[in-house]
Amino acid sequence: MDVGELVAVGRTSEVYAYGNDSVVKVPRPDVPEHWAHDEAQFTRAARTCGVPAPEVVDVIELDGRPAIVFERIDGPSMWERMLAHPADIDQLAVQVAAVHREIHAAGIPSGVPDLIERMCMKIGEARTLGDDAKDEACTIARALPRGAALLHGDLHPGNILLSPNGPVVIDWFDATIGHPIADVVRSSILIRPNADAADLPHLPDAEPGFLEHVHSSYVRQFDELVADTADSLSQWEAVVAVSRISERSDDDAGLLEFWDARNAPRSSSELALVATQFAPSGD
């Protein structure tokens, strides 16, 4: 079957039309070959729990390298919908949070790795972090509450497609089993503007103020979870941030700011400040 037109471009792969009702996700040449098999496994695992993930049709070889064939999901991404309808940001952010909570409540599938162990593996590959800091980060991570929920690991509005049958979550390569606050912290870091106000590759074409609105609208949906993990929030932000450095992010300076604040009181955490600011009064 011939590969068709380019559908999407990501940091580590390109997605092409494939046949009448499928797409094929082709990793870039520098991506380890096992990544395609891992993502296919994690996506299938999520589907076994009833999570709205695309069907994995097959893992094939293209030019001697594995690539994943997924069912084709017709519809814009949540991010595209936000850009097209900025007046609906609050409502759409509520939908993002609802999808996230659905994932966390779905159960624990087999074949998905442990969050802390995978996080420590990434921390070990963080190029701008010294060896002593890497050791400290893994020590902090292993002392945090383990949790037992399915985590997506990369959830943001660009990874939610709005099909005619409802939202579908794509890009499950970073799925793990762990504490939901780690997933919310990760999404918070992905959605908020870069420290230097540069464009976010995964959420393009947005001004910092637009991103700040999306971020606050999303975070305020998790005020109770943030409050419940208040004592460890700065540590969660620190280790989640430095584990992202291994992903060749363009915002190492901003990520390291979280690390520098690892021992700060909960009141200085931006995530906590936003959640507290918008939390319902209870009246």
Rank of each mutant, 00 (worst) to 15 (best):
P32A: 14
E61G: 01
G147L: 12
G64Y: 04
V219S: 02
V239M: 04
P86G: 08
P145R: 03
A67H: 07
G111E: 09
P145I: 11
V3T: 15
A227H: 11
L62R: 14
R142M: 10
D174Q: 07
I73Y: 02
I89R: 14
A198P: 00
D74N: 12
E247W: 01
S246L: 02
A141Y: 01
D183P: 04
E33H: 10
A227V: 06
R220C: 11
G147W: 06
S267Q: 14
A45L: 06
G153I: 05
P208I: 07
V274A: 11
R81P: 00
I177K: 06
F278V: 00
L83K: 15
G75S: 10
I181A: 01
D283E: 12
G178C: 03
T176M: 10
G19F: 05
T48P: 03
V168G: 02
A126K: 09
V94L: 10
R266C: 13
P201T: 07
V99Q: 14
A149E: 13
H34C: 03
A40L: 08
K122R: 15
G147P: 06
V69F: 11
D154W: 01
S268F: 00
I73M: 11
S77I: 05
G75W: 07
S216F: 01
H179W: 08
E61I: 00
D260Q: 15
D90I: 02
I103W: 06
R81C: 01
V56D: 10
L161T: 05
T128V: 12
I245N: 03
V96E: 15
D38M: 13
A46R: 05
L211F: 10
D228Y: 00
G4N: 09
P180R: 10
Q277Y: 09
D114R: 12
D90L: 08
E212W: 03
G209A: 14
D88L: 14
P164R: 05
P32I: 12
E61Y: 10
H179K: 03
P265F: 11
G166Q: 08
L144I: 08
D58Q: 14
D199L: 04
